[in-house]
Simulated assay, not measured.
Amino acid sequence: MYEDVFIAEVRDKTGITDPERARRALRGVLHALATRLPDGWVHHLAAELPPTLAEPLWSFQHLYDQEVHLDFLADVSARAAVPPEEAERLARAVFATVASACDPALLRRVYQPLTSDVLALTEADASLLPA
C-alpha cells in the first residue's frame, strides 16, 4: 500500500481534512507504537509500510528498553499533536489501516509483545487486528 493510500484511509476514518495533518498524526501513532515494540518486531512492521511512513519506526526502534512513562493514548496525543480526546479515534484509524495493509500472520506476531494499554485498544475492536 502506498503512502497516499494510507493517508487517505486515515483521513476517511478520522475526518482529518488536511493531508499533512493526517500524515503527522499517522507518524505520531507509529512513533508511539515503536516505543512499545522490541527492535526485531519494529523492523518487521517497518518493512510492511511505505518507507516514508516506516521512518518513525526505524528512527525510534531502540526505545523499547526505556521505561514508557505515558499510557499509549497520552503518548499518541503528544506525538501526533492532537487533543487527548482525539487520540483513541486516531489510534484506531491507524491500527485499522495497518491491519488492512500488512501480512496478517506477521502482524499477529508483532502485536504479541505490545503493552497492555495498546492491547486493550486493539482487543476492543476486531477490525484493528489482522484477520
Score class of each variant (00 low, 15 high):
Leu26Gln: 12
Tyr2Ala: 05
His69Thr: 13
Leu106Ile: 10
Pro51Thr: 04
Asp71Thr: 08
Pro130Gly: 08
Ala47Ile: 00
Pro113Trp: 11
Glu20Leu: 12
Pro104Tyr: 05
Arg24Glu: 02
Pro130Leu: 09
Lys13Ala: 12
Arg23Leu: 15
Leu121Thr: 04
Asp39Arg: 13
Pro104Asn: 08
Tyr111Asp: 14
Ala80Thr: 02
Glu3Leu: 07
Leu49Trp: 02
Asp39Cys: 05
Arg24Thr: 00
His44Glu: 14
Ala25Asn: 13
Ser127Met: 00
Glu9Cys: 09
Arg27Asn: 03
Leu114Glu: 06
Val110Gln: 14
Leu128Asn: 02
Asp117Tyr: 12
Arg79Gln: 00
Leu129Met: 09
Gly15Pro: 08
Gly28Asn: 07
Ala126Trp: 06
Pro50Thr: 01
Ser100Cys: 03
Arg21Glu: 15
Leu57Pro: 03
Ala96Gly: 06
Ser59Asn: 09
Leu107Met: 12
Ala46Asp: 01
His44Pro: 00
Pro84Thr: 03
Asp117Ile: 10
Val29Ala: 12
Gln112Cys: 09
Ala126Lys: 07
Ser59Gln: 09
Arg92Ala: 08
Ala80Gly: 04
Leu106Pro: 11
Glu123Leu: 15
Leu45Cys: 02
Pro19Cys: 08
His43Arg: 07
Ala131Tyr: 10
Ala105Ser: 13
Ala8Lys: 14
Asp12Leu: 09
Val68Gly: 09
Arg79Tyr: 00
Arg24Ser: 01
Gly28Asp: 04
Arg108Gly: 12
Pro56His: 00
Leu90Ala: 07
Ala126Arg: 10
Ala99Tyr: 13
Leu33Pro: 09
Arg89Asp: 05
Leu90Phe: 10
Cys102Ile: 06
Asp12Val: 02
Leu63Met: 10
Gly40Pro: 01
His31Ile: 01
Glu88Asn: 08
Ala54Tyr: 02
Lys13Pro: 00
Ala25His: 14
Gln66Trp: 15
Ala78Arg: 05
Arg24Leu: 01
Arg27Gln: 08
Ala101Pro: 02
Asp103Glu: 12
Leu26Pro: 05
Ala81Asn: 08
Leu37Gly: 07
Ala8Tyr: 04
Cys102Leu: 05
Val110Lys: 14
Arg36His: 05
Phe95Ser: 10
His62Glu: 15
Met1Ala: 10
Leu70Asp: 15
Leu129Asp: 04
Ala93His: 08
Val10Met: 15
Ala87Glu: 01
Asp75Leu: 04
Phe60Val: 06
Thr52Cys: 03
Ser59Ile: 02
Val110Glu: 13
Leu90Pro: 06
Val98His: 14
Ala80Ser: 12
Arg27Ser: 01
Arg11Ile: 02
Pro83Thr: 03
Thr14Tyr: 06
Ala32Leu: 02
Ala124Tyr: 12
Ser59Ala: 12
Ser100Phe: 00
Leu63Gln: 09
Leu53Asp: 00
Val29Gln: 11
Asp12Gly: 08
Thr122Asn: 06
Pro50Leu: 03
